[in-house]
Structures are given as structure tokens and as C-alpha cells.
Computed example of a mutant assay.
Amino acid sequence: MKIILLADTHLPSGQNKLPSRLLETCEAADLIIHAGDWKSMQVYEELSQYAKVIGVSGNIDDEEIRRSFPLKQTVEVGNYRIGVVHGHGEGKTTEKRALEAFEEDEVDIIVFGHSHIPMMRYAGKTLLINPGSPTAKRKLPNYSFCILHIERVVRAEFVFF
């Protein structure tokens, strides 16, 4: 199974379409997971043309998005449980807030956003992934998202552009 992981799709003013590099990759996706800060339901509608989309709301999302997406959710893919949360809040790092969101849940993978900083590492046996942002790189050199391959084993790769 090929899953596209993304977050923080803050489309800049005047831009109303997601980057072609992301959309080309979505063409072969089985599932798309968005870790919040959609900014617009237009992002959901555009991604839904490629595959099933699940996600959570983030701190900049409006009421329509918050009604459509929970603050956190868990999805099962094969034998793996994936926790999704945006990661915003007070105190602590974004990574620590993401881990705390699933303290009571058994998850194999946690996908989160908020910082716009791509990262991937294990915390114990849980794989943490922040896909960065495909539209708002801030001071980073590249935009990014992540492809998660789930077969007998999990393999994840960043796409930087």
C-alpha cells in the first residue's frame, strides 16, 4: 500500500492549486493522510480526486474544517495502526505533544505536522513522521511530503522539491 503523508498545506495568497510534484505522486496513492492545517476545504477536494483522504484539523483551520476532521484519529492499514494529530498546543515540543496524544493508544506510527520541519525517527517502537509542508517551507531549502509504503514491513521516504 502506498500512502501519501502531508501536512501544513498553507497555500500562499494567489495560489489555488497544490504543487504538481505532490499531485503527480498522489496519482499512484492508495491513501492520503493529512496531518492538519489544510487552510481550505479546497485542499481536501483536490486530494480526494486521487485517493481516499483522511486527516485531522490543525490550529489555523476554520470551523468548516474542524467540523469535518477531528483533532486526532487512528487508522488501521494492514497490521499497522497509524495515529494522526497536528501537534499544536502549549509548552513542550511539537514532537512531544504528538507522542503524548497517543500515550493511551497502541500505535505503530504517528504522523504529525505543525512545525513544517520534516523529520522521521523512532521513539521506542513507534515511528514518528512529520512530512514537512509541500507549500510552506518557511526557512527550509525545500518543500516536502512523505511516501509511506506498507507491505510486510514499513518503508518511508521523503520527497523534497
Score class of each variant (00 low, 15 high):
E106C: 06
R66F: 10
F69M: 11
R81Q: 09
S115V: 01
V56A: 01
Q73T: 14
V77A: 03
V53M: 08
E103F: 12
N79Y: 11
E76R: 14
S68V: 06
Y80F: 15
F69C: 04
T135I: 14
F112E: 00
V111G: 04
F112K: 01
M120L: 14
E63R: 13
R97M: 05
R81A: 11
K125Q: 09
N142S: 14
R66S: 07
K137D: 00
S68K: 14
R138D: 00
R81T: 13
N59E: 11
S144Y: 05
I82Q: 03
F69A: 05
F112I: 03
R97N: 02
L99W: 07
P134F: 10
L99S: 03
R81D: 01
E106P: 01
I60Y: 08
Y122A: 01
P141T: 07
I117F: 04
R81F: 11
T93H: 01
D61M: 02
A51T: 14
H116V: 04
K139T: 12
E104W: 01
K139V: 11
L127P: 03
R138Y: 08
Y80V: 15
E106H: 13
T135D: 02
H88Q: 07
E106G: 08
L71P: 00
L127N: 05
Y122H: 13
G91S: 09
F102I: 05
K139W: 13
S133F: 07
V56D: 00
R67I: 13
G58Q: 00
I65F: 06
S144I: 07
V107R: 05
A136N: 15
F102L: 02
G113N: 03
I65R: 03
G87F: 14
Q49S: 12
E103A: 13
V111T: 09
H86S: 01
L127K: 09
I117T: 09
L127C: 04
N142A: 14
A51G: 14
G83C: 05
S133M: 08
R66Q: 13
S115F: 02
K125D: 10
P118W: 05
P131C: 10
D108C: 05
S57A: 11
H114I: 09
F112N: 00
I110W: 12
V84Y: 05
G55S: 08
I129N: 08
V53G: 03
S57E: 01
D62W: 10
F112V: 03
E90N: 04
G87V: 15
G87I: 15
D105G: 02
F69Q: 02
V107L: 08
P70V: 09
P134C: 12
D62R: 14
G83A: 04
D108R: 06
N59F: 07
K139A: 12
H88I: 12
